[in-house]
Protein backbone atom coordinates (compact mmCIF):
# COMPACT_ATOMS: atom_id res chain seq x y z
CA UNK A 1 0.00 0.00 0.00
CA UNK A 2 1.24 3.44 -0.75
CA UNK A 3 1.86 5.78 2.11
CA UNK A 4 -0.05 8.79 0.87
CA UNK A 5 1.19 11.87 2.67
CA UNK A 6 -2.07 13.66 3.31
CA UNK A 7 -5.63 12.53 2.55
CA UNK A 8 -7.11 13.83 -0.67
CA UNK A 9 -3.78 14.63 -2.19
CA UNK A 10 -2.66 12.79 -5.28
CA UNK A 11 1.02 12.41 -6.07
CA UNK A 12 1.37 11.98 -9.83
CA UNK A 13 4.20 11.09 -12.21
CA UNK A 14 3.91 11.93 -15.89
CA UNK A 15 5.62 9.41 -18.18
CA UNK A 16 5.85 10.20 -21.88
CA UNK A 17 8.78 10.38 -24.26
CA UNK A 18 7.37 13.43 -26.06
CA UNK A 19 7.91 16.76 -24.36
CA UNK A 20 4.76 18.42 -25.76
CA UNK A 21 2.67 15.50 -24.51
CA UNK A 22 4.09 15.92 -21.00
CA UNK A 23 3.58 19.68 -21.15
CA UNK A 24 -0.07 19.19 -22.05
CA UNK A 25 -0.71 16.90 -19.09
CA UNK A 26 1.20 19.25 -16.82
CA UNK A 27 -0.96 22.14 -17.93
CA UNK A 28 -4.18 20.18 -17.45
CA UNK A 29 -3.06 18.98 -14.02
CA UNK A 30 -2.32 22.53 -12.87
CA UNK A 31 -6.08 23.06 -12.79
CA UNK A 32 -6.34 20.39 -10.08
CA UNK A 33 -4.97 21.86 -6.82
CA UNK A 34 -5.04 18.48 -5.03
CA UNK A 35 -2.65 17.00 -7.60
CA UNK A 36 1.05 17.26 -7.07
CA UNK A 37 3.29 16.38 -10.03
CA UNK A 38 6.25 14.75 -8.33
CA UNK A 39 8.07 13.48 -11.42
CA UNK A 40 8.25 13.83 -15.16
CA UNK A 41 9.83 10.92 -16.98
CA UNK A 42 10.86 10.71 -20.62
CA UNK A 43 11.09 6.91 -20.71
CA UNK A 44 10.28 3.72 -18.89
CA UNK A 45 13.61 3.50 -17.06
CA UNK A 46 13.06 6.90 -15.52
CA UNK A 47 9.52 5.86 -14.61
CA UNK A 48 10.71 2.76 -12.75
CA UNK A 49 13.33 4.84 -10.94
CA UNK A 50 10.76 7.47 -9.97
CA UNK A 51 8.26 4.87 -8.80
CA UNK A 52 10.95 3.19 -6.69
CA UNK A 53 12.47 6.28 -5.14
CA UNK A 54 9.47 8.54 -4.78
CA UNK A 55 6.15 7.98 -3.18
CA UNK A 56 3.75 7.99 -6.12
CA UNK A 57 0.01 7.41 -6.15
CA UNK A 58 -0.67 7.63 -9.84
CA UNK A 59 1.30 7.13 -13.03
CA UNK A 60 0.11 8.81 -16.20
CA UNK A 61 1.80 6.33 -18.50
CA UNK A 62 2.43 6.36 -22.24
CA UNK A 63 2.53 2.88 -23.79
CA UNK A 64 5.03 3.18 -26.63
CA UNK A 65 8.27 4.56 -25.34
CA UNK A 66 11.94 3.98 -26.08
CA UNK A 67 13.64 1.30 -23.99
CA UNK A 68 10.80 -0.28 -22.10
CA UNK A 69 7.12 0.10 -22.80
CA UNK A 70 4.43 1.25 -20.42
CA UNK A 71 3.29 -2.32 -19.88
CA UNK A 72 6.82 -3.40 -19.04
CA UNK A 73 7.07 -0.57 -16.51
CA UNK A 74 4.06 -2.00 -14.71
CA UNK A 75 5.69 -5.38 -14.55
CA UNK A 76 8.68 -3.93 -12.72
CA UNK A 77 6.81 -1.99 -10.05
CA UNK A 78 7.04 -3.38 -6.57
CA UNK A 79 4.30 -1.63 -4.70
CA UNK A 80 0.87 -0.61 -5.74
CA UNK A 81 0.57 2.36 -7.98
CA UNK A 82 -2.54 3.34 -9.85
CA UNK A 83 -2.01 3.66 -13.58
CA UNK A 84 -3.76 5.68 -16.24
CA UNK A 85 -2.51 4.91 -19.74
CA UNK A 86 -2.23 7.83 -22.13
CA UNK A 87 -1.69 6.80 -25.75
CA UNK A 88 -2.64 7.47 -29.36
CA UNK A 89 -3.30 3.77 -29.87
CA UNK A 90 -6.71 2.40 -28.99
CA UNK A 91 -5.67 -1.21 -29.63
CA UNK A 92 -4.04 -1.64 -26.20
CA UNK A 93 -7.19 -0.71 -24.26
CA UNK A 94 -8.28 -4.27 -23.55
CA UNK A 95 -4.87 -5.25 -22.27
CA UNK A 96 -4.72 -2.11 -20.14
CA UNK A 97 -7.83 -3.10 -18.23
CA UNK A 98 -6.55 -6.64 -17.88
CA UNK A 99 -3.71 -5.20 -15.85
CA UNK A 100 -6.19 -3.18 -13.78
CA UNK A 101 -5.41 0.21 -15.24
CA UNK A 102 -7.63 2.87 -13.70
CA UNK A 103 -8.35 4.43 -17.05
CA UNK A 104 -7.22 4.63 -20.64
CA UNK A 105 -6.92 8.06 -22.26
CA UNK A 106 -6.56 8.57 -25.98
CA UNK A 107 -4.45 11.29 -27.55
CA UNK A 108 -5.22 14.04 -28.22
CA UNK A 109 -6.20 14.14 -24.55
CA UNK A 110 -9.14 16.21 -23.37
CA UNK A 111 -9.13 18.00 -20.01
CA UNK A 112 -12.53 16.47 -19.14
CA UNK A 113 -11.39 12.89 -19.69
CA UNK A 114 -8.30 13.52 -17.60
CA UNK A 115 -10.45 14.94 -14.78
CA UNK A 116 -12.61 11.80 -14.92
CA UNK A 117 -9.55 9.58 -14.76
CA UNK A 118 -8.24 11.53 -11.74
CA UNK A 119 -11.46 11.11 -9.80
CA UNK A 120 -11.48 7.39 -10.57
CA UNK A 121 -7.91 7.17 -9.32
CA UNK A 122 -8.88 8.94 -6.09
CA UNK A 123 -11.76 6.53 -5.54
CA UNK A 124 -9.37 3.60 -5.83
CA UNK A 125 -6.73 5.15 -3.62
CA UNK A 126 -7.88 3.80 -0.28
CA UNK A 127 -8.80 0.37 -1.56
CA UNK A 128 -6.52 -2.67 -1.63
CA UNK A 129 -5.25 -3.41 -5.11
CA UNK A 130 -4.27 -6.64 -6.83
CA UNK A 131 -0.60 -7.49 -7.21
CA UNK A 132 0.01 -5.26 -10.19
CA UNK A 133 3.35 -6.68 -11.18
CA UNK A 134 2.12 -10.27 -11.15
CA UNK A 135 -0.95 -9.38 -13.16
CA UNK A 136 1.15 -7.48 -15.66
CA UNK A 137 3.59 -10.35 -16.02
CA UNK A 138 0.72 -12.77 -16.53
CA UNK A 139 -0.77 -10.52 -19.18
CA UNK A 140 2.57 -10.41 -20.93
CA UNK A 141 2.87 -14.18 -20.87
CA UNK A 142 0.11 -14.31 -23.45
CA UNK A 143 2.42 -12.78 -26.00
CA UNK A 144 5.13 -15.37 -25.41
CA UNK A 145 7.82 -16.21 -26.29
CA UNK A 146 9.73 -13.42 -24.61
CA UNK A 147 12.43 -11.63 -26.55
CA UNK A 148 13.99 -10.14 -23.46
CA UNK A 149 13.76 -10.38 -19.72
CA UNK A 150 13.48 -7.23 -17.62
CA UNK A 151 15.03 -7.18 -14.21
CA UNK A 152 14.81 -4.42 -11.67
CA UNK A 153 17.73 -3.79 -9.40
CA UNK A 154 16.57 -1.12 -6.99
CA UNK A 155 15.69 1.88 -9.13
CA UNK A 156 17.65 0.48 -12.04
CA UNK A 157 16.30 -1.69 -14.88
CA UNK A 158 18.36 -4.27 -16.75
CA UNK A 159 17.25 -5.52 -20.11
CA UNK A 160 18.49 -9.04 -20.85
CA UNK A 161 17.91 -10.24 -24.40
CA UNK A 162 16.98 -13.93 -24.31
CA UNK A 163 19.95 -14.71 -26.58
CA UNK A 164 22.21 -13.50 -23.78
CA UNK A 165 20.45 -15.48 -21.06
CA UNK A 166 22.46 -18.55 -20.00
CA UNK A 167 20.79 -20.15 -17.01
CA UNK A 168 17.81 -19.49 -14.77
CA UNK A 169 17.80 -20.93 -11.28
CA UNK A 170 14.86 -21.10 -8.90
CA UNK A 171 15.42 -19.70 -5.40
CA UNK A 172 13.01 -19.33 -2.50
CA UNK A 173 10.55 -16.84 -3.95
CA UNK A 174 12.54 -15.46 -6.82
CA UNK A 175 14.66 -16.59 -9.75
CA UNK A 176 18.33 -16.00 -10.35
CA UNK A 177 19.31 -15.24 -13.94
CA UNK A 178 22.81 -15.68 -15.33
CA UNK A 179 23.80 -13.61 -18.34
CA UNK A 180 27.14 -12.44 -19.74
CA UNK A 181 28.93 -13.38 -16.55
CA UNK A 182 26.56 -11.47 -14.29
CA UNK A 183 23.74 -12.53 -12.02
CA UNK A 184 20.35 -10.91 -11.60
CA UNK A 185 17.41 -11.45 -9.26
CA UNK A 186 13.86 -11.32 -10.48
CA UNK A 187 10.68 -11.57 -8.47
CA UNK A 188 9.03 -14.38 -10.41
CA UNK A 189 8.60 -18.13 -10.18
CA UNK A 190 10.59 -20.46 -12.42
CA UNK A 191 7.38 -22.01 -13.77
CA UNK A 192 6.05 -18.64 -14.87
CA UNK A 193 9.27 -17.71 -16.60
CA UNK A 194 9.58 -21.14 -18.21
CA UNK A 195 6.14 -20.68 -19.75
CA UNK A 196 7.20 -17.37 -21.30
CA UNK A 197 10.52 -18.49 -22.77
CA UNK A 198 10.90 -19.98 -26.23
CA UNK A 199 10.82 -23.78 -25.73
CA UNK A 200 13.05 -24.14 -28.78
CA UNK A 201 15.88 -22.37 -27.00
CA UNK A 202 15.30 -23.01 -23.30
CA UNK A 203 14.91 -26.38 -21.62
CA UNK A 204 13.92 -27.05 -18.06
CA UNK A 205 16.57 -29.60 -17.17
CA UNK A 206 15.74 -29.79 -13.50
CA UNK A 207 13.02 -28.73 -11.06
CA UNK A 208 15.16 -25.69 -10.24
CA UNK A 209 16.99 -25.02 -13.51
CA UNK A 210 16.29 -23.75 -17.01
CA UNK A 211 19.20 -23.75 -19.43
CA UNK A 212 19.81 -22.09 -22.78
CA UNK A 213 20.59 -25.06 -25.06
CA UNK A 214 23.10 -22.98 -27.02
CA UNK A 215 25.26 -22.78 -23.89
CA UNK A 216 25.44 -26.51 -23.34
CA UNK A 217 28.90 -27.98 -24.03
CA UNK A 218 28.19 -31.59 -23.06
CA UNK A 219 26.32 -33.84 -20.69
CA UNK A 220 28.36 -35.72 -18.11
CA UNK A 221 27.38 -38.76 -16.12
CA UNK A 222 28.70 -38.69 -12.58
CA UNK A 223 26.80 -41.56 -10.97
CA UNK A 224 24.30 -44.18 -12.02
CA UNK A 225 21.24 -42.30 -13.31
CA UNK A 226 22.75 -38.96 -12.37
CA UNK A 227 23.94 -36.46 -14.90
CA UNK A 228 25.28 -32.93 -15.14
CA UNK A 229 25.15 -30.37 -17.88
CA UNK A 230 28.55 -28.81 -18.49
CA UNK A 231 28.24 -25.31 -19.90
CA UNK A 232 30.59 -23.75 -22.39
CA UNK A 233 31.88 -21.45 -19.67
CA UNK A 234 32.68 -24.46 -17.48
CA UNK A 235 29.72 -24.13 -15.13
CA UNK A 236 27.80 -27.27 -14.10
CA UNK A 237 24.09 -27.78 -13.62
CA UNK A 238 22.27 -30.84 -12.29
CA UNK A 239 19.97 -32.69 -14.67
CA UNK A 240 16.95 -34.72 -13.62
CA UNK A 241 15.93 -37.87 -15.49
CA UNK A 242 12.99 -36.09 -17.16
CA UNK A 243 15.20 -33.09 -17.84
CA UNK A 244 17.75 -35.34 -19.52
CA UNK A 245 15.08 -36.73 -21.83
CA UNK A 246 13.92 -33.20 -22.73
CA UNK A 247 17.46 -32.02 -23.33
CA UNK A 248 18.36 -35.03 -25.48
CA UNK A 249 15.35 -34.29 -27.65
CA UNK A 250 16.58 -30.76 -28.20
CA UNK A 251 20.31 -31.34 -28.78
Amino acid sequence: MSQTSSPGRLRVAIVDDEEPARALLREYLSAHPEVEVVAECANGFEAVRAATELDIDLLLLDVQMPGISGFEVLELLEHDVSVVFVTAHDEHALRAFEVYAVDYLLKPVSAERLAQALSRARERLGRPQPELAAVAAAARAEIAPLRRVLVRDGPQVHVIPVEALDVVEARDDYVRLRSRGREYRKQQTLGELAAQLDPGRFVRVHRSFIVNVERVARIERYAKDSRLVVLKDGGKIPVSRAGYARLRGRL
Binding site: E18, P20, A21, L24, E27, A88, K107, P108, V109
Partner: peptide, 17 residues
Amino acid sequence: PHFLFNALNSISSLTGS
Protein backbone atom coordinates in the same frame (compact mmCIF):
# COMPACT_ATOMS: atom_id res chain seq x y z
CA PRO B 1 -3.74 7.65 -38.22
CA HIS B 2 -1.61 7.53 -35.06
CA PHE B 3 0.73 10.02 -36.65
CA LEU B 4 -2.24 12.36 -36.90
CA PHE B 5 -3.41 11.72 -33.31
CA ASN B 6 0.05 12.36 -31.91
CA ALA B 7 0.50 15.49 -34.01
CA LEU B 8 -2.85 16.84 -32.82
CA ASN B 9 -1.83 16.13 -29.25
CA SER B 10 1.37 18.13 -29.77
CA ILE B 11 -0.58 20.99 -31.30
CA SER B 12 -3.02 20.89 -28.41
CA SER B 13 -0.08 21.17 -26.04
CA LEU B 14 1.62 24.01 -27.92
CA THR B 15 -1.63 25.95 -28.02
CA GLY B 16 -1.15 26.70 -24.32
CA SER B 17 2.60 27.13 -24.14
